[in-house]
C-alpha cells in the first residue's frame, strides 16, 4: 500500500511541469462533479459507517468523535 501511495505521489509530481491553469480554463474543474467534496452527503454517511466499524477514522476531514457507535 505504501508503494501505491509512492506511485500516486509520483504520478502527481509527473504533472508538475504543467501545474495550474488560467482562470478562463477552469470550466471543467468548476463542474459540481469535479469538486473534491462532491457528494458530501455520501461522504458524511460513509464517515459514520466506517467510524463505527473500523479502527481508523478521518483523513479527509477531522477524525474526532461525535457518536458512541457501539
Amino acid at each position: 500500500m505504501r508503494r501505491l501511495l509512492f506511485l500516486f505521489l509520483l504520478l502527481n509530481l509527473g504533472g508538475c511541469s504543467q501545474l495550474g491553469v488560467h482562470a478562463w480554463e477552469r470550466g471543467t474543474l468548476a463542474k459540481d462533479d469535479m469538486a473534491l467534496t462532491a457528494d458530501a452527503v455520501d461522504l458524511s454517511l460513509d464517515d459514520h459507517i466506517y467510524f463505527s466499524k473500523e479502527g481508523t477514522s478521518g483523513g479527509r476531514g477531522f477524525a474526532g468523535g461525535g457518536c458512541g457507535c457501539n
Partner: peptide, 26 residues
C-alpha cells in the same frame, strides 16, 4: 476530549485534474 489538526494542500494540476493532500493529527 479530542483535538484534531489538519494541514491540507490542494493543487490544480491541469484543466482536468485536481489533487489534495492532507496530513492530520488527532
Amino acid at each position: 476530549n479530542t483535538v484534531d489538526v489538519i494541514f491540507g494542500l490542494t493543487q490544480v494540476m491541469s484543466k482536468r485534474w485536481i489533487t489534495q493532500f492532507n496530513l492530520s493529527l488527532s
